[in-house]
Design a protein around this nucleic acid. Structure first.
Length: 344
DNA sequence: CACATCGA
DNA sequence: TCGATGTGG
């Protein structure tokens, strides 16, 4: 998933407390996928309700968002819409690797190798439309906004961050940097002991660009060379070699040709990053949780323990008074310019 | 993922 | 009291 930009970045540590009162566009598909991969039993079986429907995504969503809210982090979940046609190859490759993982999972189980079984099972995770809809229902019952992007969620989040509607984007993938997010927060899930100051990692686009001596256009060029969800990349080019080539500033076409790529063919890929399809409209409001609806969804429909739900909800009542997070450009009418009323 | 439980 | 391990759904 995503593109391997990690080696080019130098993230700074970002304590959760630094995010208090801030709005974050959360990559919903990315997060839910992580939950499906991680929240499993020893043999790799996902958690299910009594009807056999998976619940791992709901477990992760409930606990993680209540943790965030308790710290005053204000998540705006953004979900993928229709993938660009150019993503078809990536989607097919992912499907095939899931099939292989499925077989490897069964093999490991038969061999009694639980550790391998769990790892392979994680790779079989599939996020269905139904799971996303349930997650959106859960968010709505929690009183949290969610946004359905027309296409890539990372693009939608990046635009919202660039417009100052949210402070930054949260994802484990690096795609939103190519989409122009000013701030990417990674590791918002890796929790440490509750008291011992949890920390995420922050990548700031401006700092990244000046460190690498690149423009935003050139960062996209690096992406095209190493490969994105929408193109294969140049043979023999990884992050290091791609960066080195682009740093020679030979221009768009010469750079691609040097790496054996066809500039004309890559133009549509570049335009996905430069001017992606994004939604325009008011930011849905935050509101108070609907505890009855939550009990119905989680306890009655999906067999959650009532005690655990209550414990999770108790953390919402402990949440700090929200500090208004300043939009970057007050007074300017831009996409998603609305700020709903604060919840209780 | 977060929480409960257990043994050093 | 704390890391390791188990449980929840």
């Amino acid at each position: 998933m995503g593109l391997p930009l990690r080696d080019l970045t130098h993230p700074t540590e970002l304590p959760w407390s630094a995010l208090r009162g801030r709005l974050l566009a959360v990559d919903g598909n990315n997060m839910l996928y992580q939950f499906l991969a991680t929240i499993r039993q020893r043999d790799g079986q996902p958690f299910t309700d009594r009807a056999g429907r998976p619940t791992s995504h709901l477990i992760g969503l409930l606990y993680r968002t209540t943790s965030w809210l308790e710290e005053g982090i204000r998540p705006v979940w953004v979900f993928d819409g229709k993938p660009p046609d150019l993503k078809a190859g990536t989607l097919r490759t992912r499907f095939e690797s899931k099939e292989r993982a499925q077989a490897a999972w069964q093999e490991a189980l038969a061999a009694g190798d639980l550790e391998t079984a769990r790892r392979k099972a994680a790779q079989t995770s599939r996020l269905t439309r139904a799971m996303v809809e349930e997650a959106q229902r859960l968010l709505s019952d929690l009183g949290l906004p969610s946004i359905q992007a027309p296409s890539e969620g990372e693009a939608q989040g990046a635009r919202m961050a660039a417009e100052g509607v949210v402070w930054g984007t949260a994802s484990e993938d690096y795609d939103s940097l190519l989409f122009g997010t000013p701030r990417l927060v990674r590791g918002l899930g890796s929790r440490q002991p509750h008291d011992q100051g949890r920390a995420a990692h922050l990548i700031e686009r401006d700092a990244l660009l000046s460190e690498l001596g690149l423009s935003q256009e050139e960062l996209i060029l690096v992406g095209l060379l190493i490969g994105t969800d929408f193109n294969d990349g140049a043979a023999g080019y990884g992050p290091k070699k791609a960066l080195k080539l682009v740093q020679q500033h030979r221009g768009w076409e010469a750079t691609l040709r040097t790496a054996g790529l066809d500039p004309a063919q890559l133009e549509p890929v570049a335009s996905i990053f430069r001017s992606p399809e994004v939604a325009v409209g008011p930011l849905p409001p935050f509101g108070p949780p609907d505890e009855e609806a939550l009990a119905h969804l989680l306890v009655e429909e999906h067999d959650f323990s009532e005690d655990r739900l209550r414990a999770a909800l108790a953390r919402l009542h402990r949440r700090p008074v929200p500090v208004p997070s300043a939009p970057a450009a007050p007074g300017h009418q831009t996409v998603l310019d609305g700020f709903g009323p604060e919840g209780a």
